[in-house]
Structures are given as structure tokens and as C-alpha cells.
Design a protein around this nucleic acid. Sequence first.
RNA 1: GCGCGGGUAGUCUAGCCUGGUAGGACAACGCCCUUCCGAGGCGUUGGCCCGGGUUCAAAUCCCGGCCCGCGCACCA
Length: 574
Amino acid sequence: MRLCHRMSELMEMLIRRGFLWQSFEIYGGMAGFIDYGPLGNGLRRRLENLWREFFVINERAVEIDTPTVNVEEVFIASGHAESFTDVAIECKKCGKVFRADHYIKEKLNIEADCTIEAVKEIIEIYGLKCDCGGEFGEPFHFNLMFTTSIGPGKGKRGYLRPETAQGIFIAFKRLLDYFRGKLPFGVAQIGRAYRNEISPRQGVIRLREFNQAELEFFVHPAEKTHPQFKRYENEVVRLVDKFDNEHEITLREAVERGIIAHELLAYFIGKTKRFLIEAGVDEKRLRFRQHKDDEKAHYAADCWDAEALTSYGWIEIVGIADRTDYDLKRHMEHSGEDLRVFVQFKEPIKVKKLKIVPDLKKLGPVFRKKAKAIAEALERMDVKDANVEKVEVEVDGEKIEVSRDFFSIEEVEETIQGEKIIPHVIEPSFGLDRITYVILEHSFDKDVVDGEERKVLRLKRWMAPVQVAVLPLLSKEEFERVALEIVEMLRNAGIYTEYDDSGSIGRRYRRFDEIGTPFCVTIDHQTFEDRTVTIRDRDTTKQVRVKIDELVNVLKELLSSEKDITEFGEVFRG
RNA sequence: GCGCGGGUAGUCUAGCCUGGUAGGACAACGCCCUUCCGAGGCGUUGGCCCGGGUUCAAAUCCCGGCCCGCGCACCA
């Protein structure tokens, strides 16, 4: 029913104030699903927009949107069907879980069908037991993809996508065209993905339906670099490599020392770090950890996770993987489409080559009708030896020996303009739900104001779901009228604004502190004398007086910067 | 999926052992008063996770389910 029983103060607040709720609550709830309330939804939308700025607008990248329901073929090609629909067996004694087919192959050297019945039978016939001597329980399906059927009746089998990435790979031909055939380019997608987790736990951390923001950055396999790398090369990052060694070094050094495989991965690690900090993740509670070799997904050559320290421990919030050409290759094989990219060489390559030049005058009388075909076959042939006496060609299945009399060999120079390659893809993949949660946990703070403890959510100003609250000091008609005019003015200016006239002014400040509203605008007695209002800063509780006419500009500047409020007006009260 | 512990207004909690009227705090809402950091008064709304059983009577006892937490396992 609840997202956690021993509810932390933070979770209690998030639910009470409308950041997030357990889904399907009135029907008893269902683990692994959450509703975003008004404030949580607002925060996640801000996060998505910031992500777009970093990973779409700021790159040679575009954003697309593809279906969440996919046909089966997609995941057969991607390898997900294989790694998602296994039958598993669990030891009743030691509790270890194995992939049934692997275990049977290893122990009995039998290629078992991957069905529950087949596995059950084999276990019974051979009396298969666990290494520890324990017996296996009932085999069970271990299908992390949600299945569905497309169309009426039995329909066609479909799956809810377990990652957004496949939609991009499938549309690759169109995308390559869109980018006029030139590498590198990025394609992003923000959307829902689904994994039917066996037992989702830890509240919002492991969901069955979740939000991903993924960028697939396609590059030439030999050019895993980025023109903007210098922006991040001196960024010091905290790294944990696959041998569990910790490093606190610059990205340039990490690449030079071979800790990070190449510049492009390092570039995205740096960019991810800047993005997360900009969004409100605490730098001191952020690190990048390399996947160990046995931990990597089936498609990854190298993978680094951004991890954040939370009350659940270190949790993965971003995965930055070098997926190589795995996906495009697999889709080429399964679809039969050519997904290669023609890459022109900087300088065309000139190759000296020996070439057979058929002598048609001699071929014609001897070979008659076959002469033309023989001549063509001769031209296609590779020769290495300029002095070869005779060659054999195959025409319509018939092998024909052709002696030197019928052709000459010349040395020619060929120009090769370029080659066809399968691009590699570097994929930064963001778990938006987890990042949203981490931002909330890292922003949640308590301090003391006038001897009273207060809860305050120190969100980055621009990220706050409610950016400004407008408060009439008195609940009197003339105060309220001016306040509502200001609300309208701010909303028209695109500022997320709320109005609150309920309870004492102190109580209202606390309410907005709790949900992270960075600024409160208060209409007081002086407003009626000089058309000024006060702006109060969430973090310092300081107030300054500002003319109503300047309010929009001042607030916009404050919201898009970290400037001190006292730069913008006379300090009020103090 | 296994084991242990839980589920009472929006939130926290008393009551459960020993069956009989569900009580409080905070929050929310309305009115009054007041007005610059969770003031006060009066009032209001709202609750025993679901289903079954035992019983004259179930929040309480029993069974099943769902959900939550923790440990194990799982997390391509």
C-alpha cells in the first residue's frame, strides 16, 4: 500500500505534498508502479528539458519518438528475447538461481529445450541437483519483458520495450538519410520502458514501468573522439574501475592511462557529470563505476555507470555504454537491410593493380557465343602474377581454361573513394525516475530559522516545480487583488507561479520551503504606498524590496542564475 | 520466488495479547482574530488493506490474498 513502511521523513513529505504516490492505491496497489503527483511530474519535466538542452540541442543530435509496443522480431534481433525468456531453476537449499539451459548443458552436456516441461523432465530423469547437493524447485519463467498481443484474436506477439534504444536502431536508415549520410550524429529518445521485475523493491528505485532518456551517438569505429572533449578534459571525476580501484583524476588522464577506453566515453562521462550537478545531484555523492566483465549487458564493450549515494546506498542512475556495432549488425542480419554507412576517405586511395584485358578479336572466333561472358569473367578476376600462362573461368557453371593468347595483363591504377562501415554507438542512458529521486534526496535539508526547525528542499532554482509563490500578507480584499494581478503577470511571463492566502505568513513560507519553491513574493502594507513587493529567498530567508514593474525581469534573472537576492533590491527587514 | 516483521484518517500513532463505543497529534478546509517566518479561538472533513471463516459481536482471533520493510536470490 505504501511506498515504504518505515517511511523516511523525505518519503513522507513527497507523498503528503504530491510529488509521488503509490499507483493503483485504491485497489490495493501494485509494486513497481508509481504515480507522479503534480510536483513530482513538474520536477521530472524540468529534468527532461535540461536533458534536452545538454544531449540534444547541444549536440549534433535529434530527438525522435517510437512505439513502446514492439513486434517480436525487434527483440529477437536485439538479443533481448534470448536473454529475457529463459527458464530458470532455483536450488531449494542454497537458493542459487541458474539459467536452466546453461546449467543442463554444463552438467549433462544436453541441449535442452527452453520450456518448463522439458527442463522439469530432464531434472527428473537425470536427478539433477545443485552443486551444494540441494534439490531444485519447480522451474519458472524468467521473462523480464511484458508480453502482449497485437491485433484481434491470438494476434501477433508483441513486447513492451525494455529500453527505448531499439526504436532508434530500427529507424537507423531513415535517420542516416536525415543526417545526409554523415557521421557522427546522435539520436535521442525520452520515453517509457518496461521490465517485469521479479520483485521490485526499494520504493521508487526499481520500477516495472520507468522513464528513460537515451542518446545513441553513432560514430565511425575508428573515430571515438568528440570535437568538444576539451570542455570536459580537465574535469576531475571520481572513478571506480572494474578492478575496484578508485581514482580521482581528470578525464584526459583517465583516457591517457587507459582507464576509460576512449575519448568519446570520457566526453559523455564529463557531460553527464555536468548535467547531473546542474540538475541538483550532489557532486560529493556522485561517482562513475565501470562494469566488471561479467556484469556487462550482452551488447556492451565497455560501460560506466553514474552512481549516486542515497539512503539505499550507491545506486545506478546513468549507464554510459559503448555498444559497438552490436545492435546495427544484429538488425542487419535479421532484417536483411544494409545499415552500413559509406564513408568517403579524405584522400581517395590509389591502388596499383594487375588487370586482365581480354582480346575479343581472338576470343570471338574460338568461343563464339560464350566469348562475351568469358571476357567479362576475365575482367572480374584478380591476378597476382603478371606472367601467368593460363587461367580458368567459370561461365554458366562450365569451367573453361583460357590461355595467355586470349588476354594480356596490364598494370592499372584504381582510385577507391571510401568504404562502407557499420557505425559504433556510444549510449548514455538516463534513468529519469531515479535521477528525480536522487535530486529530491540530495536537496532535502533541515535548518533552524528563528529557533524553529524547518524542512527545506534546496532544489536548483530553475528545476523547482513551483518557482514563485505569491502571498498577500493579509487576507484582505485589496491585498488579494494585487496578489492575483501579480500571479497573472508572472504566469504570463512563463514562470510557474502559485498563490496562497491560507494561514499565517510564516506558515506559508514553510510550506513553500518544503516543496523547494525558491522565491516568495509578498504583498504588504508598503505595496500600496510605492508599488513595491518583497522577494524572499528560500535558502537564506532574506528579503528584498522590488518594484512590481521590475518583478518579472528580476525573478527571471534570479531563476536562471545563482545570484544573490540582495543584488536586486534594498534589503527588507534583514 | 523463499524467510522474518508489518498494514488503523493526508501523515504519524494509541487500541490488538485479554473480541463489545476506534482515541490523540500534526496536516487540510471554513469562519473569527492577527500579520514577515509552522501564533490563537470556534467549527468541519476524514480511518481499521482486501476477501473468507469463527462468534450474538472482529481493528482485535484463524485462513487466504494484496501491499510495504528487511535478509537471501534476481536486476539482461
